[in-house]
Design a protein around this nucleic acid. Structure first.
Lengths: 231, 231
DNA sequence: CTAGCAGGATTGTTCATCAAAATTGAGCCC
DNA sequence: GGGCTCAATTTTGATGAACAATCCTGCTAG
């Protein structure tokens, strides 16, 4: 019998510590756009809201800053990171590096791993067909994550995750714009099929184009967001 | 007039907060092997030693855990990470991905950036000639960092830094073994010169061999350390 | 209208406290 | 002697209150 439950129920997501759990919840909120870029993360308020002490919350926020999801100014506290154009270029440079390499090395991947790719794209296609755009975008990123996973490095997987989480900040400012991203699902399909049929070089070319186009679009979004902010 | 100075003088390394400064100092200590892998990071003791509160120290340790320099067990605290063979494979998979990609993309790099590579190798050579092996190893890693830097992504640079810091954990267990690493300096030179002369493919091949050999050696080191621990 | 100055709010950091779990060690049984 | 139990001690995880330093805001004075 729950005697008293705080604003948001306190379920331990990991077999781990409170600060990590809090960080998870903040990450989640940020990624769904609930805490849009620029939102100040005031520790007293958030601590109360999440039912933890200010100290614990501060630890969590520090992790987010370390992950690049928030920025910090001395005596001014933390705020959800706002991507600028340079960030987007940086993120896509990182994606190109990791994803293209993964494609090139995919010859060594077991077919089982390649089947996994197919599953992700199929998920994304289903979501797109049902016009659940947001979900389609998530699954699409899942496909790219699976591509990186071909390299077999947990550290690279983690790096991709944090980078992708940062990229979501761009969409978080423009929730409706996520629809646009769904247009990339067919191109995921192309890359996926080329990979499975061994068309390594073609897959790399297609993926590079994909990333270039996507980058351009996200840059435009970020610029638009900056302009809208100026109004 | 310093009225009272704590065990280790408290200079703010960043224009930032105490926890980050403490994390820096712990990182430094770990990387120079002063806190060898397996060392428990007891917060009361370290907090006293560094002249900060237990809370602040805990924030710093959590950052180290997040970076993979320490591991954490609930109710058992944190300890300096001890690399296992899987970690080494993982780290080298990441290095191959990032460094080889950098070499392949180096065609687009300004010659000025390539000159920077040369400077690093020269530093390493000088240190090796003077038989300052430890320093030579540091400069050698600096060369590889500069290679990654060709990709122009601050995020990839950071990723390489944390990965390299983890790799140092292997050497931290065997301080004397750093000598062996110095033997790689001539091979850095080869890769560097091939890059500057535009021998992109050859540079990639040489670098891949380099990484394979280095990985083998580090794996052996880790195995030896595990065996020695068993004694 | 602007400069500057209170006063309140927020941050950065420390300290003291408490429960929960791990570790230690003494005593005990076989 | 070897191995076990169980209590005392230590360490961790987390909280709440305190305080100085800095910021923000709104008011006043010129």
């Amino acid at each position: 019998m729950p005697d008293e439950i705080h604003a948001e129920a306190v379920e331990a997501p990991q077999g781990d510590v409170a600060a990590d759990a809090v960080a998870d919840r903040l990450r989640e909120r940020i990624s769904r756009g609930e805490l849009p870029p620029g939102t100040p993360l005031r520790d007293a308020a958030l601590a109360g809201e999440l039912g933890v002490s200010r100290n614990t919350l501060r630890e969590a926020v520090r992790l987010l800053v370390h992950e690049g999801l928030a920025v910090h100014q001395l005596y001014k506290g933390a705020a959800v990171k706002r991507l600028d154009v340079a960030d987007v270029h940086d993120i896509y440079a990182a994606r190109r590096c990791v994803e293209l390499r993964a494609v090139e090395e995919s010859v060594y991947s077991p077919t089982e791993a390649l089947e996994n790719l197919d599953r992700r794209v199929t998920e994304a296609e289903r979501a797109a067909a049902a016009e659940r755009w947001n979900e389609a975008g998530t699954f699409s990123l899942g496909f790219h994550r699976a591509v990186v996973h071909l390299l077999g490095s947990a550290r690279l997987d983690r790096f991709f995750d944090t980078t992708a989480a940062q990229l979501r900040l761009a969409f978080a400012e423009f929730p409706q714009e996520q629809d646009f991203q769904a247009q990339y699902v067919p191109r995921d399909r192309v890359v996926c099929d080329l990979l499975r049929s061994g068309g390594r070089a073609e897959a790399a070319t297609a993926l590079r184009q994909y990333l270039d186009d996507s980058e351009r679009q996200v840059v435009d979004m970020v610029r638009a967001a900056a302009a809208a902010r100026q109004n």
